[in-house]
Design a protein around this nucleic acid. Structure first.
Length: 414
RNA sequence: CGGGGUGUCGUAUACCGGUAGUACGCCUGCUUUGGGAGCAGGUAGACGGAGUUCAAUUCUCCGCACCCCGACCA
């Protein structure tokens, strides 16, 4: 993409109404636009990052048998009354409205109920199970207090997956596969080292739920990390019994602040019973389906990545989620030969299938470099006067600042 | 929801009970061109309402918005 055709601009200063690093940088670099407190629009560059994260998550969800679908934002009051989660006394994040005909509707803050009800239409026999479905949805939650930039908004993109299985054994098998898939996701986006499978308060069905917590100063949760065992315990369940069950000692744990980037838990058969999701087993006996739920906050993950890797100059994207792999910076000025060289290099790289943002703007070098640092693409290719005489291109690694020189063909072969 | 705070050109800020200033941005021209250029000219602003006052952007009250702490957080 030519930067001259990108409508967004960078800003020199952080907006005064944002304290969170992720929001400051994402706004300055033109990735997101704040619409109101806790509500952010994703601009072209930001959308690319969201889509890249989604692609990584999608790949893992497909690998464990997920069927992607897209549920609705408008949800029925009657449905949620069946599970006693319509009343504001029980769920305090509802946005609600009224249709012209007087019916009340809610705006989806979660989708267990609608998807489980949907499943009653399709799942009837043990032969239909298991079923795994997932979606990427914009969740709407009327949070009392939005905070931390895109990390905790009233509107955010989430991947939610639900598993429907015949019994506990099948459920646990999938549950463990999901844990592995989640590990793969966090590894792939570059947060693997910082992210811990964390034991958190469970529910009626199991002792624990599992969270995936990324250690970060910007975190809202407090966890106790066991570095050797690569696991953690949420502060809310840090009890002698839990430590014993996990076979860890309190003094082996380190307290950390962390961001909850994923959460998985078991519903058992409660919701299936409430919503009438049953199947017939081999003997023809009717049984409730076992339900599991698996979430990853896509936009929160994006914020976590910014928080985790940004430096004093700006964002530093891991290659797997960067909006473009290369930032081709042309320092042509009024030198037509340099401009022509940069143009042809851009064409050639793009034709070779490389993902390139080409800074073809007529601005000075300092501004281009500062913008490039702020936007945080992994590799910067600099084309200047010297390039023409030496035949050497400058390749700068955003993360380390390391600069290497290479020829055009070496770059293309990369 | 409890507590605290802040609202000034597009952005970041300054000052002030009496003509609202600066920087960046944006527009025009000239120069400049490897780390946010220089000169000249131009554009653009007091969240809304009520009150106090000769006079309110400034003080008071109400509303709204935003931020922070806490509570909350499948």
């Amino acid at each position: 993409m030519r930067q001259s055709s990108l409508f967004t601009k960078t800003r020199r200063e952080a907006p005064k109404d944002e304290l969170a690093k992720n929001a400051q940088l994402l706004i300055r670099a033109g990735y997101v636009h704040k619409e109101m407190a806790g509500v952010y629009a994703y601009l072209p560059l930001g959308l690319k990052v969201v889509e890249r994260i989604k692609a990584i998550v999608r790949e893992e969800m497909e690998a464990i048998g997920g069927n992607e679908l897209l549920m609705t934002s408008l949800q029925s009051k009657e449905l949620w009354e069946k599970t006693d989660r319509w009343d504001d006394k029980n769920v305090d994040v509802w946005f609600k409205s009224v249709l012209k005909n007087g019916s009340e509707v809610g705006f989806g803050w979660s989708h267990e109920e609608p998807i489980t009800e949907l499943m009653t239409e399709y799942l009837a026999s043990y032969r239909d199970l298991p079923a795994y479905v997932y979606q990427f949805q914009t969740k709407l939650r009327n949070e009392l207090r939005a905070k931390s930039g895109i990390m905790r908004g009233r509107e955010f993109v989430m991947k939610d997956m639900y598993s429907y299985t015949t019994d506990e054994e099948a459920h646990l098998k999938f549950y463990n596969a999901a844990i592995q898939a989640y590990h793969n996701v966090f590894m792939h986006v570059g947060l693997g080292e910082l992210t811990y499978l964390t034991f958190a308060s469970g529910g009626a069905f199991t002792q624990f739920s599992h969270e995936f917590q990324t250690v970060s100063e910007a975190g809202e949760d407090t966890i106790y990390v066991h570095k050797k065992k690569r696991l953690a315990v949420n502060k809310e369940v840090l009890t002698p019994e839990v430590l014993e069950k996990l076979d860890v000692k309190r003094e082996e744990l380190v307290e950390e602040k962390a961001i909850e980037v994923g959460n998985i838990f078991s519903f058992g058969s409660i919701k299936s019973e409430q919503l009438g999701l049953k199947y017939k087993d081999e003997e023809g006996t009717e049984k409730p389906v076992i339900l599991g739920s698996y979430g990853i906050g896509i936009t929160r993950l994006m914020g976590t990545i910014v928080e985790s890797f940004a430096d004093e100059k700006g964002i530093v994207w891991p290659e797997a989620v960067a909006p473009f792999a290369y930032h081709l910076v042309s320092l042509a000025g009024n030198n037509g030969d340099v401009a022509a060289y940069a143009e042809s290099l851009y064409e050639e790289l793009t034709d070779a299938g490389k993902s390139v943002l080409y800074d073809d703007r007529d601005v000075r070098a300092g501004e281009k470099f500062a913008d490039s640092d702020l936007m945080g693409l992994p590799w910067r290719i600099v084309v200047g006067k010297d390039t023409l005489s030496s035949g050497q291109l400058e390749l700068v690694h955003r993360k380390t600042g390391e600069t290497t020189h290479l020829t055009r063909s070496e770059l293309l072969a990369r």
